[in-house]
């Protein structure tokens, strides 16, 4: 127990002393995950809207595929991307393997189905009258869609927060396509895995604290957002 307390104190010291290596790892983590979420959000919400408001052949199949994709382990995504991006793979010529761009790609693949599924569920449960009212008040279909998205904005924000929470903590894909290279592709989860395997717990605990703090903040944010969406009785 004393060891854990002592390691935790050292970890706090490491964080507050501004250790460049630790903060570089944290910045890589946030940079990669923010890029991934920014790229994935708009197309995912647009797709979710199409799935919720339009009928076309194969629509149910697409919904099923996205719901299934939620359960794909990060390490399988990493393995697939590794095979595609490795020198002998079909996209080897792009030289993306072991770069931050490859990590972004992996995280997009991971968060996209979650964003689509959660946004779709939110739009599906939204009131159809919002769309009809916007149309009947003279809004073009694009503006009517924007109106509906505004009406369900709290559900969409929850989807984005949940997706961000998933990708910032994933280790499988980042490890395989990023390669865990110090100051380049080493992020919080891959660094924790490495330091723990080395038996050096201080940095691992420090980074774990960052992840936990972030998870706590995201949940506070989510609760605050959901609170704003409450119905006044």
């Amino acid at each position: 127990m004393d060891d854990i307390i002592s390691a935790s104190l050292q970890a706090l010291n490491l964080l507050f002393s501004g250790d460049s290596q630790v903060w570089r790892i944290i910045s890589v983590s946030f940079l990669v995950s923010l890029k991934a979420i920014l790229i994935a959000t708009l197309p995912a919400i647009a797709l979710a809207f199409v799935l919720a408001y339009y009928t076309f052949p194969g629509r149910r199949l697409v919904i099923t595929l996205f719901n299934t994709a939620l359960a794909i382990p990060a390490v399988v995504v990493g393995l697939t991307l590794y095979l595609l991006l490795s020198r002998s793979g079909p996209f080897g010529g792009l030289h993306l393997l072991f770069t931050q761009d490859a990590m972004v790609l992996g995280q997009i693949v991971l968060c996209f189905p979650l964003l689509v599924a959660m946004s779709h569920a939110s739009l599906q449960s939204s009131d159809q009258r919002a769309w009809e009212t916007a149309i009947t008040l003279g809004a073009a279909p694009f503006y009517a869609a924007i109106t509906v998205l505004k009406e369900v904005r709290f559900g969409l924000m929850a989807a984005v927060i949940a997706a961000f929470g998933r990708i910032i903590a994933e280790v499988g894909s980042s490890m395989m396509v990023g390669g865990n290279i110090l100051n380049h592709t080493r992020n919080i989860p891959t660094a924790i895995a490495l330091e723990t395997s080395r038996g050096s717990f201080v940095q691992g605990i420090a980074l774990g604290m960052v992840l936990l703090t972030m998870a706590l903040l995201l949940n506070f944010l989510l609760t605050a957002i959901q609170g704003k969406g409450e119905v006044i009785h």
Binding site: R129, E132, T133, L137, T147, E151
Partner: peptide, 23 residues
């Protein structure tokens, strides 16, 4: 067209009445 139970967008009465004019 007005629904049996009309749908008012989230926001104030002003926002709702102004909706069609903004378009």
């Amino acid at each position: 067209y007005l629904h049996q139970q009309p749908y008012l967008f989230q926001g104030s009465v002003f926002d709702n009445v102004a909706y069609g004019l903004k378009r």
